[in-house]
């Protein structure tokens, strides 16, 4: 892979040392870089191959791309249950600072997948160096998302023939100081409360930045909720909302590519940043 340099390193995050991965094109004059905000829990692992493929494709277009792991996730320091969504937004700010320290990037396009898209949007609100947002199959409703995630415990308990309790009982447990284990991920009271707080703080996914919203599924059209959400995001004339018929790659393994999603995102990048 001679046309780009890839480096992996640890850097100081908001709370602990974070793992960063930098894709630098060999020859580029661009000063806008792309920073990736990864999805939640196992969705991060499942989508990793497609994320890496997309990062390499964007780097071939001349963009510096920076991927990193949030505190308590991936290779970064700490335990998953010890952090909140606010910590992960601070990590994103720390990642942008590290990117600027290492490269001559001045602006960033925040690229997020699923919950990462919502965190990218939240982070963008308080920054003046954001040139755009790439939001893949975004999950903007924090409370719904975490409840849906916890609901999976009921499914796994049922399939493992364990005594399943109700969703209400699980929510009561996590709200009152007890962690709930979902497929090996401990949802702590701290983490759960941060989802509720984000839901209150960001009731609508608004942004003035040019945004590329991609809904991705095998179905012929996008889910209604995402169509409604995207209306809030279309304030900038350069924004675009598309539905891409492609295999979801964040909720199952053995997905190595998302050709259409990557190509269409590259075309949007060319449109707003030039060839």
């Amino acid at each position: 892979m001679a046309e780009q340099l890839e480096e992996m390193f640890f850097f100081k995050g908001g709370c602990v040392d974070l793992l960063g991965f930098l894709h630098s094109p060999a020859h580029s004059t661009r000063t806008t870089a792309i920073v990736h905000c990864h999805p939640f829990a196992e969705e991060k692992n499942c989508s990793h191959a497609v994320t890496v493929k997309a990062a390499r494709a964007f780097a071939r277009q001349g963009f510096v791309v920076f991927r990193f792991d949030y505190s308590g996730c991936g290779d970064s320091g700490g335990e998953f249950s010890d952090f909140s969504l606010q910590d992960w937004i601070e990590d994103t700010n720390a990642a942008i600072a590290e990117l600027k320290r290492r490269t001559r990037s001045q602006n960033v396009i925040l690229w997020g997948t699923r919950l990462g898209a919502a965190l990218a949007l939240a982070c963008a609100r308080d920054r003046d160096d954001v040139a755009g947002l790439i939001l893949w199959q975004p999950s903007f409703h924090f409370k719904d998302y975490i409840h849906q995630f916890i609901r999976q415990k009921l499914v796994s308990d049922f399939s493992n023939k364990r005594q399943a309790v109700s969703l209400q009982a699980l929510l009561h447990k996590v709200a009152s100081g007890g962690a709930v284990q979902v497929y090996g991920y401990p949802i702590s009271t701290l983490l759960y409360a941060s989802f509720l707080a984000m839901d209150d703080a960001y009731p609508h996914p608004e942004t003035p930045h040019p945004s590329y919203i991609a809904t991705i599924s095998n179905m012929p059209s996008a889910p209604l909720q995402l169509v409604r959400d995207s209306e809030w995001l279309m304030q900038n004339p350069a924004s675009s909302c598309v539905h891409i018929v492609e295999e979801p790659f964040w909720d199952r393994y053995w997905r190595w590519d998302a050709v259409r999603t990557i190509e269409k995102t590259q075309a949007w990048l060319t449109k707003i940043q030039g060839g």
């Binding site: 196992e42 996730c73 991936g74 090996g184 053995w254």
Partner: peptide, 14 residues
Amino acid sequence: GGAQTRIGSHRMYV
């Protein structure tokens, strides 16, 4: 193993 990365399912390898 499988399609996993060096992190492992639910960070088991880490």
